[in-house]
Structure formats: structure tokens, C-alpha cells
Design a protein around this nucleic acid. Sequence first.
DNA 1: CGAGAACCGTCAGTTTGATGTCAGACTGAT
DNA 2: ATCAGTCTGACATCAAACTGACGGTTCTCG
Lengths: 219, 219
Amino acid sequence: MRILLIEDDTVLGAAVRDQIAADGQSVDWVNRLDAAGDAVRGAAYDLILLDLMLPDGRGIGFLKTRRAQGDVTPVIILTALDQVSDRIEGLNAGADDYLVKPFDLAELSARIGSVARRYNGNPNPIIEHGPLEIDLAARSIRRDGKSVSLTAREWALFEAFLSRPGQLLSKAQLEEKLYAFDAEVESNTIEVHVSRLRKKLGSSVIETERGLGYRLGKA
Amino acid sequence: MRILLIEDDTVLGAAVRDQIAADGQSVDWVNRLDAAGDAVRGAAYDLILLDLMLPDGRGIGFLKTRRAQGDVTPVIILTALDQVSDRIEGLNAGADDYLVKPFDLAELSARIGSVARRYNGNPNPIIEHGPLEIDLAARSIRRDGKSVSLTAREWALFEAFLSRPGQLLSKAQLEEKLYAFDAEVESNTIEVHVSRLRKKLGSSVIETERGLGYRLGKA
DNA sequence: CGAGAACCGTCAGTTTGATGTCAGACTGAT
DNA sequence: ATCAGTCTGACATCAAACTGACGGTTCTCG
């Protein structure tokens, strides 16, 4: 089995490489996202181990790009961020599993085995939410069985709600999610996007709490 | 470390129990959700292993109920459903990790160790106050398990009390909290909002001290 | 390269519901 | 019994939110 390790920490990277080699698998180890891009274009891997914090960007972006291009290679995320939100973001982006640092090398072996064993081509991971069937990996939604397409902004907004179901999100929080840091919006952009989402997905997907913000609807 | 195993498959359950025992941990094994409820009420566990498909209901509901009641015991989900949607639902419901069947017993041991090691912080800060469960981050309140929604002013007022439990707050102080500087209320606004809060949260949440002000009720 | 479509931010007219105000009932201290 | 303080239902108001429309920009495809 060919494994691609994307990790910039030299100590951890070496340890992981050695562990995998000891398990009898073949490993390629890169420490930057651009090198990772070259690697996946140059060879077919059976599994990717992906660190989220890399010198030239966040690993999530790399993962999303791969998935957007139709790559279904199993991915295990390695993250120092022990936060449910990061795990969910990773899974939403199409990861198959995650490991929170520091992790046991035995645990790593177990999960590699697990992903490999499990990976025999299961078609599509689908979240059900009321009348909606959401396939995050494929970025597709079916509403009452009929497919609905969302734009980039709409996905970003909807994901913000999905990753925190039940939580109230203020417009300021949502703007942060949608527009990184810079790029200030000085109009009712969020309202408009919420309106567009509701038109596509049903009026009850997102609930308004006047003066406070929005939250994902019950179902 | 005390571990509660909730699993109805007798073969798998026995294997897991033996493995945990071999690791030197103490296990209680139940095969139904109602028995699980009795167990968690009767003893304090350090970790719960939860099967999702049980004869008397879905494990997700059990997990959600525990979390809603403020229980923060780490939970690892055991599921035969190899679907990202289940993992996300589980993680959202407050699970700390999951294992997809069939799993290695070595992997189980590794994850138990991992969760136990990792578990230091509390995922969701929920304040319990009598029949109320208050999640300030999510801006949600449950009263006897049923969710109650507050308006912006009501939140502001309630937070003023929560941040100074037991302390007497005069109407003037409360007005300052609610209306920044330009305090321009010339009526019984505070009284009205206190009344509205009591209607939503129960008449005993806030106590009146005639001529002096208000304070948060005992519980 | 050009035409058309898609996407997104902005705005304006309309809708909605949270909130301040008031009046009358109620409470408790003296 | 009196009366100031408090409670609460009702209501009008106005800011917050909704949404259709528009135009600028980017993307797509011939």
C-alpha cells in the first residue's frame, strides 16, 4: 500500500514514516503543500496522511481541492487542534478519519489498517436533515429527492450552520466565516444569502433570532 | 478507570469486555438503553462505549440526553454504520470519538487510551440552574428539557444576573447594563423585562427585594 | 475573443416582531 | 386602611429583517 505523508514537523514525520515502514507499507514524505500537489499528480496513493498546519497554507484547502477534483483517496487528518469544530471541518471536507496529536504510533497503525480495511468503496456519505439529504463530499443536496445546487457562498454559509447545529451564530460571526479577515461588508449581505438559502432549501432550514443572529432549524 | 459498555451484540460485547479487562480497566456491560440509564444514574463512569443500534432505541438519543443534562463523560461510539453522516451526528451530539465495526481490539484499546489522555477540557460550558440548562455560547436555554428562546434584551438582562449570582442588583444598575450610557428610560422597563423573563424561565428565577432591586433566585 | 450565464454585493420598499410605554391590578410594610 | 412599590396584559412604534431587483464582475463555452 502506498501512503503519502504530508507533515512539516521533522521529528513527528520521521517517527510516522518509520512506523509505517515497520508495518511494511511504502511511504512518501513531503513537508509542504506544493510538494504534496506534485506528489499526488505524479503517483497514485492508497492513503494520505495530512497535517493541517503547514508552512504554505492550511491542509484543509488541499483536501477540499483534491475532493473537488474528484479524488477519492482516503485521507486521515493529523491535527494538533483538539477541537470538535476542526474534526467536523475535516470530515466535512472529505476526510475519512482524524488523529489528534499527540497520538500513539500504535493508534496510527490501527487507524491506517482500519481505513484500508474499511475502504472498499462505499458510495456516498450523506447527512439527513429533515427533507434534505446533504452530500458534503460531492457538494450536492437533494431536497425531497430533487437535487438542488448551491453556490460557493451558499455552501460556506450552510456549512457554518451544519458544523454548529443548534448554536446561535451572529451576523458578525457569519461574516467572519465567509470573508476571512479583510473584506468588510457594509450591507445586508448575510441577510440576502440567508434568504437565498431559504428559498433553495426551504424556509425552515435557518431560523432567525431577531437582534441576535441565526441558527440551524430543528429539522 | 470505570468504563460503561452499552452493546447488545453478545459476542462483540464479551470480546470488548474481555479486552478492556485485560487492559486492567473495570467494565460494566449493559445491553439496553434503559439499563444504561440506570447505570449512569447509579455510578460515575470515566468513559462510555456506546453502540448506536440497540433493541430499545438509537444510542444517539441517549447521548444527546446525557449531554443535555450536563453530563460530560467522554463517549466513544461503536457503530456498524460506516457513514460520515453518523460520525458527524455523533460528534455533534457530543461524542468524543467513534469506532466503525468491525474494529481491532487493539484499536479499541488505543482509542480508549487516547480519549482518556486527551480528555481534560469541557466541550460545552453548560450552566445548570435549577430546572434550567443554559448554554451561553449557543445562546440556548432548556427548561425541564424543553428549549426556550429569549430575545436580545432578555439575554442581556439574564446575563447580568448570571454574571453576579446571588448579588442584589438595583434597577439603576440593570438599566446601565441594558442601555449603555444614554439611559433614557423613564418607565418601568426593567420591571416589564423581569416579568417577561419570569414568564419564560419560571417565576422563581429572579427574586424581588422590595425597594432595593432584584437578585438571581436560589435555584 | 465575444456573448451569455452565473454569481454576488448593494439597495429600496415592504413586512415583522421586539420593545418601551401605560394603565390598572396586586402586594406588603407600616 | 393606606400608599408606594411592583406586576403584567395590551398596544403602538420603529428598527431589524426579508426579498425582489439591478448592475458589475467573473466564468463558460462556442
